[in-house]
Nucleic acid binder design. Structure first.
Lengths: 106, 106
DNA sequence: ATACTTGGTTACATAAAGTAACTTATTGAT
DNA sequence: ATCAATAAGTTACTTTATGTAACCAAGTAT
């Protein structure tokens, strides 16, 4: 298996968004900047994978990391412009879910 | 880790769409009904996982499977109304990818 | 009977994710 | 000074998901 014929930009976007947790993380950050621990408990992701994802998403330019030298240190994660621009995608998913996902399949 | 506070319908939608290959399969089927072998080569997925995904998506009501007793047998997969209704989601992903994914990150 | 085609399945190998304990740095209490 | 507490990770180990390639069943045409 090697050929795909699919637009490489689209394929790349899908590969980013369909990685486990990524879409949920963006969704959380759309409500404002968040800290590591707060994301972990609100999304229900393990520290290990959260750490991996945040690094990947930072490299992809979707989020930024800000060190605040409080006591103890606070790390604040927030969306970049590129990350914020994914809002319409998530809004469409939300709309679809309201219309097509029934209560008993959750 | 157990609590999420996220709307369960949205979370379910994300869990469907962020499963590997699922979004790409829907994207292919949006261009019309397709056969097993055709999907396999156009998307670049292994027969094993394709078979698994198609069963899951059928159970989720996103696609339907039609047996055509030709020679040899033809199995035609196509989107249901629920599946077709995901088009706006994929269109938004496509738009985002055109605007934000650069050539060199593909 | 034999070979060919479609739509799978199986057994085995590798990669990704989950779990829980541990680390580093800073600070406030004893 | 020592001990416990908190934030943000990391590490070692287990379980699950995916990839690979060989194999199988049904239906012909030869």
């Amino acid at each position: 298996m090697k050929e795909t014929d699919i637009c490489p930009r689209f394929e790349k976007a899908i590969s980013i968004l369909s990685q486990r947790w990524t879409a949920l993380l963006i969704h959380q950050l759309l409500t404002g900047p968040k800290r590591f621990g707060s994301i972990q408990t609100s999304v229900g992701i393990s520290g290990k994978v959260l750490s991996e994802r945040l690094k990947e998403m930072e490299k992809q330019g979707i989020i930024k990391r800000k060190v605040i030298p409080e006591t103890p240190v606070i790390i604040e994660y927030s969306l970049t412009e590129k990350g914020i621009s994914l809002e319409p995608v998530l809004r469409e998913v939300e709309k679809w879910s309201q219309e097509w996902i029934s209560a008993d399949e959750t």
